[in-house]
């Protein structure tokens, strides 16, 4: 199936940054299905993935509508080329040992990832309630309720693992070190953030940094953990330049749509 291309609109791209972050994060979380550390938590992780998929679908449908070329949520999810995805690089990183193409990662990576991303998303949803884009505001309203639970789940586990055994504390520290280089991107502004603020669409990322940091430090403190020093590295997934993992994620995700052009599912 040939790829689709969306029109170059700052508004659409702003929505896609959120949509794609939710989509790829959900995709990684779904890898745990059937492989969780305990049956009850398997069910919980799947619920998180389902919530994020719901948010991704709503945002992708909205983006498609704004784009105005008649595409639907699936065409946007499955038929864009890699540079057109605007998710945070953080959510591409492996989080489970033996994801097919990436041997790194464990449950600690998942909890750290959830904590950092869910807090970031929740702060976004809160701000987006007042967006001039009514569709976006409505999506934020529903997502906020779910995001609160995601943050609570991640925070509870962070404390359990940070203040559990020596091994769990060690793994959490290692997971934080692996994730932290990708934090810079979460709060680095570019032209898209400027445009979003100017049009009243939503917050620029830098505006969320302080609140985010306060919350993360509070949870880490309760977990007897410390945030690593900030890294000078700035990842660029939100500009369409991804890590090596993205190619594998998309190959897996897009395969059927590409292999069966014109297919109905």
């Amino acid at each position: 199936m040939t790829s689709i291309a969306l029109k170059p609109s700052a508004h659409v791209r702003y929505v896609l940054r959120l949509a794609d972050t939710c989509l790829i994060h959900a995709q990684r979380l779904a890898e745990w299905c059937g492989h969780g550390p305990v049956l009850e938590e398997d069910i919980a992780l799947t619920n998180l993935s389902l919530d994020l998929l719901g948010q991704a679908r709503a945002l992708l449908s909205h983006a498609a509508q704004l784009d105005g070329q008649g595409f639907d949520e699936d065409q946007l999810a499955f038929l864009r080329d890699e540079p057109a995805y605007l998710n945070l690089t953080l959510v591409e990183q492996p989080m489970r040992r033996s994801s097919a193409h990436a041997p790194g990662g464990d449950f600690a990576d998942t909890i750290v990832r959830n904590l950092l991303v869910a807090t970031w998303l929740r702060l976004h949803w809160q701000q987006l309630l007042g967006s001039r884009d009514a569709g976006l505001a409505a999506i934020a309203g529903k997502a906020l309720k779910e995001a609160r639970y995601h943050v609570e789940h991640a925070a509870d586990w962070t404390v359990r693992l940070g203040d559990g055994t020596d091994e769990s504390a060690r793994r959490m520290t290692a997971a934080l070190a692996r994730a932290w280089p990708y934090v810079g991107e979460m709060f680095a502004d570019d032209a898209l953030d400027d445009a979003a603020q100017a049009e009243g669409l939503g917050p620029r990322r830098s505006a969320l940094r302080e609140a985010w940091r306060r919350e993360i430090d509070a949870v880490l403190g309760a977990a007897q953990l410390a945030a690593p020093p900030d890294s000078p590295y700035l990842s660029t997934g939100s500009r369409g330049v991804h890590s090596e993992h993205m190619g594998f994620i998309l190959a897996e995700m897009q395969h059927l749509q590409r292999a069966y052009p014109g297919g109905r599912w």
């Binding site: 995709q27 779904a30 890898e31 299905c33 059937g34 492989h35 049956l39 398997d42 069910i43 799947t46 619920n47 993935s49 389902l50 998929l53 719901g54 991704a56 679908r57 992708l60 949520e73 699936d74 999810a77 499955f78 897996e252 995700m253 395969h255 059927l256 749509q257 069966y260 297919g263 599912w265």
Partner: peptide, 30 residues
């Protein structure tokens, strides 16, 4: 039984089918 179906979650052909499959496998865990 969650495993043979779990194989296809990341490759589900549409977002709706992905959600349905996840929910089904989750039920099986339950």
């Amino acid at each position: 039984g969650m495993l043979p179906e779990g194989n296809w979650v990341t490759r589900a052909p549409t977002l709706k089918r992905k959600c349905i499959l996840l929910a089904k496998i989750q039920d099986e865990g339950g």
